[in-house]
Structures are given as structure tokens and as C-alpha cells.
Design a protein around this nucleic acid. Sequence first.
DNA 1: CACTTATCTTTACAGTGTAAAGATTAAATC
DNA 2: GATTTAATCTTTACACTGTAAAGATAAGTG
Lengths: 201, 201
Amino acid sequence: MRQTGTYHHGDLRAALLKAAEQELNANGVERFSLRGVARAAGVSHAAPAHHFGDATGLLTALAVVGWRRFLATQQRHEARAGPDPLDQLVAATVGYAAFAKSNTALFQLIFASSKPDRCHPDFQAAGDTAFNHLVELVKAVTGEDAVEDCDARTDVLAIWSLIHGFSHLLNNDYLAPISQSKAAREDAIRTLVTRYWTGLR
Amino acid sequence: MRQTGTYHHGDLRAALLKAAEQELNANGVERFSLRGVARAAGVSHAAPAHHFGDATGLLTALAVVGWRRFLATQQRHEARAGPDPLDQLVAATVGYAAFAKSNTALFQLIFASSKPDRCHPDFQAAGDTAFNHLVELVKAVTGEDAVEDCDARTDVLAIWSLIHGFSHLLNNDYLAPISQSKAAREDAIRTLVTRYWTGLR
DNA sequence: CACTTATCTTTACAGTGTAAAGATTAAATC
DNA sequence: GATTTAATCTTTACACTGTAAAGATAAGTG
């Protein structure tokens, strides 16, 4: 709680984002409460308005954070993998699912919620960056450019659908058998992605 | 609105389910309002309680309807396709995405919402039925049983992830180029699914 | 007919998001 | 350093939400 004499918080904006993510993980996107976030941060319920306008503003800002962490998680996995393009792509997809698994609420927020402003420039820019990264990885594997080559576009669509569906099903408890072990999840993804390519060529 | 002398609605339960689906399509799962549904049905805001208990009860019942329509949509597409097992599977996946496209809110409700009671026997039974149907279709293609054979389990996982990811991305406006034309969507799905099998064997 | 049950309404309450106005502090300007 | 200005947070208020409890009405049952 705030001490006497600390009418001004200092860094309320960051504190609210942190509290909002915790609220989101605890209650889910659908039961998100702006007043609850303010309570958790130890300020009045109207305090967030000055920093974010309304609940949409806060969740939009949080979604941008989510997009960046989503991409960073993939890149962290890539850094640990070998230099082979296919290994890099597999590592990225493993990171994709790992993010979904350990950031359940953020994953839902960035991909399937109408609470953030999905038309906001920052939201779109962060999302586009993440998407382009996937396109680049596929491009490195095929040697083709998804923008020009039609088959390459299909490849991107296939890989994206595959890993996104896997992550989303995982995120909603539809893959209980695999969900338990991290190794089992990674194995499954590795098999799915590599089988797609090796089956093709 | 209700006429004088019609204190009892007649078939309020069905009317509420219908109104709830419209509310859901109009406002989305996250902005769903029980009072709004009651208003649309022309009854007091507490009327739904007697039929469904609370909002969770109503949305659980609606989700069960969603599961059944989800399966029925797939079967309708299968009936129009040829007898070849792969054609049947492709038709089912096309139906999968078609349902997602034209039942946006229901798709979100059954797969990714915490508002219905996902542990309710009816919900689980309806969901299991839909899942088992997909397993049977894959089984018909491979000749193996997903319960026993490990490769077949992976095949189910792959196809399910693929079509579910595609549908979910489509549902959230991430496949704008394909989203426009029905033929383009069906072509893309057909390519993805068939490429998975023909590439493999 | 009388009685019971099912159905719907009314009323009430705690909770929500947002807007407006007031209070307090930090920063900027003189 | 004193005064003004701007930023930050609180208080108050309002319309809305879901749910519970009690009352009103109609339908079914003996």
C-alpha cells in the first residue's frame, strides 16, 4: 500500500501494467477488472485513467508488451538452436508454443480478444513485426520469398496454422496428454514441423 | 414485446438461446450481457434465472448447441464430397473452417471461453463427440487407430492443429487475403491437408 | 373448484467502467 | 526562493452489470 505523503506513485504506469498482467493471469481476459488492477496497485479506481484513458488503453499497451515478449521468446529459443534454417524454424515454433503455455492470458489477449484496440498503430506494428519474423524464417528454409512466390505463401500459412493451432489447443486444455511434459511438447512440435518439410521435399 | 395477458412466454428457454446467440454475434463473448439477452427476448432481466440458473448456465447450454452445429457443419460438407477417405477428411476440415467463419462467436465460445462451464457433462460429451469424429476420419485415411498407433496420434494432432490454427487465425482477421473468397479459403485448406498426406506417403 | 407448481416480475444489493470535479504534489518559470 | 503551471491522484456520481429474494401471475393437478 501507499505510504502517507506518497500522493504521487512514481511509476504508476509500469506498476499498473504489471498488476494488469497478474490480474489477467489470475482471472482471465473475460473477467478482467480495471478496478481490481487499481486495487492491486494500491491506488484509487480512477487513477489508471490518466495514464491509459480507459480499460481498452491499458489492455492495448499490455498487448504490445505481449507481442514483444512473444517475439523475444521465439528468438531466445532460436539462439539456443543450431544454425540450420530448419532448426531455427523449429526452435521458433517451440518458442511460440512455450510462450502460449506460460503466458496464457497474454496469448489470448494478443490473438483473440476484442478488449485491446487491435487497430492501434502500436498494436499492429508489434504484431506485424512478429509475423514478418516468421515469414523470414520460412524464407530461409525454402529459399523463396512469401511475398512473390505462391508456394512459399502456402508454406507460411501451413506452418503458422500448424503451430498456432497447436498452441491454441494447448492453451485451452485440449492437449492434456502432451501438456504435462515440456519435452513431450517440444518433441511433438519438432515432429510436426520437420515432417511437413521432409515429407514435401 | 410481450402482449398483455402473456405473462408466460411459452418457449422462453429456446427464445433466450436464440437471443443469446444474436447477442454473442453482435457484441462478442467478452461483451456478452445477460440483461441484454433478456431485453431482446422481451422479458425481465431475472427471467433467464429460472431456466438456466445464471449466465454460465445459459452459455453452457448455448455452447452445447454450438458443438452440435460444429459437428453437423462438418458432416454436411462430407455428405457433398466423394467417398474417398482423404476427400472426406478434407471436406470435414473445410466444414471446420466454414463453421468458424460463419459462427464466429460460437467458435470462440466452445474453444476458448471460460464463460461456459467446460466441466459440465453435456459440454464435455458434445466436445468429445466432435473430437472422436475427427479421429475416425484420420483413421480412415491412415488405416491405423490413433488410440494404439503412435504415428496415427501424431497425424491426428497435425491435422487438428492445422485446421484449428487456420480457423482461429481466420476467425481473428489474421488471414485477410484468403478471408474474402469462399473458394480461396477452400482451396487453401485443400492444399494444406492434401499436401500433408501426399508429402508423407 | 382448491391447491400446488412453474414461470415471470419487482425490488434490492454489491460490483463494474467512465466522466467530472476537487485535492495534492512535482515541475517550470519568474 | 516564491509563484505559477501542469501533472497526478482522489472523491463523487451515474448508468450499467449479475445475482438473490420475495412477490405476482398463470398453468397444471387433484
